[in-house]
């Protein structure tokens, strides 16, 4: 499994479907951070989506098929890391629940789940990272995405790493633990409620008076960025991995190419 020459653990990067299609720079940033934490990164081609859309819509059969596909894709990895609390939570907390208790699949899913980590908690909790390659001077505020916070208890880890960046000031906003209103299909099925929720969120973001709003989940970020963009806000929206890795060449989420 781990590279016999270097003894570096082999980490399978589960990019997530949103990062893959909408913001690959987050995937590149994640890879850079994992490598910085002295691991080898592999990106299995057979990965697609974690299956949450099916799982959360009540379609267990398809969710299970996708779970088995994902588990198979990451055979041979010491760890499976995702730059998303929501997808990592799916892989870690929910895959075993999709399988029949006592079945071989359940055993496989449980063994797989034990190797899964969300990116930032992997860096801090597993790899003991206390500094990062990124450099940034300015103020940021951080939104705790729900699954990461409540399923994987990710709270201090991103803050620890952010505070290690000289010149970066973290300004906490009110209600940083309250849902932004994304919720996957929720935002499409109940757009009015979702919009009311993200409106409260962007009001808190604006009140925090920071240059950038950060979070660990692209779904939440697209929702918040979409609202900030509609409000013609000057606040930039980025995935926390981009700042930590110093991958800031691309414009912020939902920003025009002229803003870099």
């Amino acid at each position: 499994m781990s590279d016999p020459a270097t003894k570096r653990p082999r980490v399978g990067l589960f990019a997530t479907c949103l990062v893959d299609m909408f913001r690959p720079s987050v995937g590149m940033a994640a890879a850079r951070l994992i490598e910085y934490a002295d691991c080898e990164v592999v990106v299995p081609h057979a990965q697609t989506c974690c299956g949450q859309p099916a799982y959360n819509s009540g379609d267990r059969a398809d969710a299970k098929a996708l779970a088995l596909q994902t588990i198979a894709a990451f055979e041979g990895c010491d760890y499976v890391v995702a730059p998303s609390g929501s997808c990592a939570g799916m892989l870690k907390a929910h895959y075993p629940r999709l399988m029949d208790e006592g079945s071989d699949d359940h055993a496989r899913a449980s063994a797989f789940a034990a190797r899964v980590h969300e990116l930032v908690s992997f860096l801090v909790d597993v790899r003991g990272l206390s500094d990062v390659p990124g450099a940034f001077s300015g103020t940021v505020t951080y939104h705790d995405s729900c699954s990461g916070l409540r399923e994987l208890t990710i709270k201090s880890q991103p803050r620890t790493l952010l505070k290690s960046i000289p010149g970066l000031e973290l300004k906490e906003m009110d209600d940083c633990e309250i849902c932004c209103g994304f919720g996957g299909a929720f935002s499409v099925k109940f757009p009015d409620i979702s919009n009311a929720m993200v409106e409260k969120k962007t009001a808190n973001i604006a009140a925090a008076d920071a240059d950038i709003i950060l979070a660990g989940d692209l779904g939440c970020l697209m929702n918040m960025a979409g609202k900030l963009s509609r409000q013609e806000s000057k606040i930039a929206c980025r995935h926390v991995a981009e700042i930590l890795a110093g991958e800031l060449d691309d414009p912020p989420i939902a920003s025009s190419d002229d803003k870099r």
Binding site: A15, V19, D20, M21, F22, R23, P24, S25, V26, G27, M28, V43, H45, P191, D192, S194, N195, V198, E199, M222, N223, A225, G226, K227, S229, R230, D250, I253, A254
Partner: peptide, 14 residues
């Protein structure tokens, strides 16, 4: 109706 939809960067991570 209430917010913009962010555009992708143009290439996939893969």
């Amino acid at each position: 109706g209430g917010r913009n939809f962010p555009a992708p960067q143009g290439k996939t991570f893969q």
